[in-house]
């Protein structure tokens, strides 16, 4: 075979193998490592599966943070959409420094059989104006509701 053609053939074969290997790796990894996102409403309505790794998000309900045991570092809190849907989250570990009541939060973990969300990871906002895209809607609705409540107060 002509050397140029042979080189081309080598190159093409390498490239094809590379593409095949990557595609295989990617597809295999994607199928196992995607975490779907659910809102509090979907969690309450039962749309979120039990025992599967998912992401949830919402606002931390006021006054809901509690520490169930006195030995470890477990913490429980309620995640709400400030629109009637909420669920409990349990997490064992340090909460992010920016974690606070009334603030947006995203957690990755699994729902147990009692519809308690067992979180493996909890993310809070990064600065005070940033809201994760997933909970932007919830956040805006809550803000609007608060504003409405406030103006209702002044009207009285």
């Amino acid at each position: 075979m002509h050397p140029v053609r042979r080189n081309r053939l080598i190159t093409v074969l390498f490239a094809l193998t590379g593409v095949a290997v990557t595609a295989g790796l990617v597809l295999n990894a994607l199928s196992e490592n995607i975490n779907l996102f659910y809102t509090p409403e979907e969690v309450v309505a039962g749309a979120a599966p039990e025992g599967v790794r998912i992401r949830v998000g919402g606002l931390v309900a006021d006054g809901s943070i509690s520490r169930p045991d006195t030995e470890g570092v477990d913490v429980e809190f309620v995640v709400s959409d400030m629109d009637g849907s909420d669920f409990r989250v349990r997490y064992s570990g340090l909460l992010p420094a920016l974690f606070r009541e009334g603030q947006g939060v995203i957690a990755t973990g699994r729902l147990d059989e009692n519809r308690m969300f067992i979180a493996e990871e909890v993310l809070a906002r990064h600065d005070e104006t940033y809201v994760p895209a997933e909970i932007m809607d919830i956040h805006n609705n809550a803000k609007a509701a608060q504003a409405a409540a406030r103006s209702a107060q002044y009207d009285d």
Binding site: V26, N28, A29, I34, N35, L36, R55, T108
Partner: peptide, 28 residues
């Protein structure tokens, strides 16, 4: 690239939201 932009494409196509975690990137 796929792991980073897949959530974007997924949301655009289906309206749903998902995230691709570190295990994906490590596996690839």
């Amino acid at each position: 690239f796929i792991g980073t932009l897949y959530p974007l494409a997924y949301e655009w196509l289906t309206g749903g939201r998902l995230s691709v975690g570190p295990p994906f990137f490590n596996a690839v």
